[in-house]
Computed example of a mutant assay.
Amino acid sequence: TPMEYLLPCFLLRFKEFNPAVNLQVEVGFLSDVRSSLKDGLADAGLLMVPEHLKVSLSNEFEFLEILKDNLVAVFSPIHRMTRAKPVDIQTLSRQPFILDKPGSDNRLFIDEILLLNQIDPSALNVKLTLRGSSAIITAVSQGLGVSILPEMLTRKWVKAGLISTSPLKCKGVDLTLLLIKLKNSWTDVVKSLWRFTEGFIEIYGSNPPCLQRFTPL
Rank of each mutant, 00 (worst) to 15 (best):
L30G: 09
K181M: 03
P216Q: 07
A135E: 06
V189Y: 14
A84K: 14
K85C: 03
L53P: 00
G45K: 01
V158M: 04
N70V: 09
S185F: 12
L211Q: 11
Q95W: 08
F75A: 07
N70Q: 14
L71S: 07
K183D: 04
F75W: 07
G145L: 00
V126L: 00
V21C: 04
R80W: 09
G40K: 12
I110Q: 08
I110V: 15
L37P: 00
D174L: 12
L116T: 11
L71P: 01
Y204C: 06
A160F: 10
S147K: 09
F17E: 00
L116A: 13
T215C: 01
L47G: 02
F61L: 00
S122R: 14
F97S: 10
Q142V: 02
S166N: 15
I148W: 03
L41P: 03
L37W: 05
I66K: 04
K38P: 00
V87M: 06
H79R: 10
C210R: 10
L99W: 07
S104P: 01
N18L: 03
D100Q: 11
D120H: 14
Q142W: 07
F200L: 03
G45Y: 02
L46K: 09
L128P: 03
K181T: 14
V126R: 11
A44L: 05
L193N: 09
G28W: 05
L182M: 13
V72E: 01
P208G: 09
G40H: 11
A84D: 09
N207A: 12
L37F: 06
M3E: 12
V55K: 14
K101D: 01
A42N: 05
L193Q: 09
L99N: 10
K38A: 08
L116G: 10
K183L: 02
L67V: 05
G172Y: 10
S192L: 05
F200K: 12
R83V: 11
A73M: 02
R195H: 14
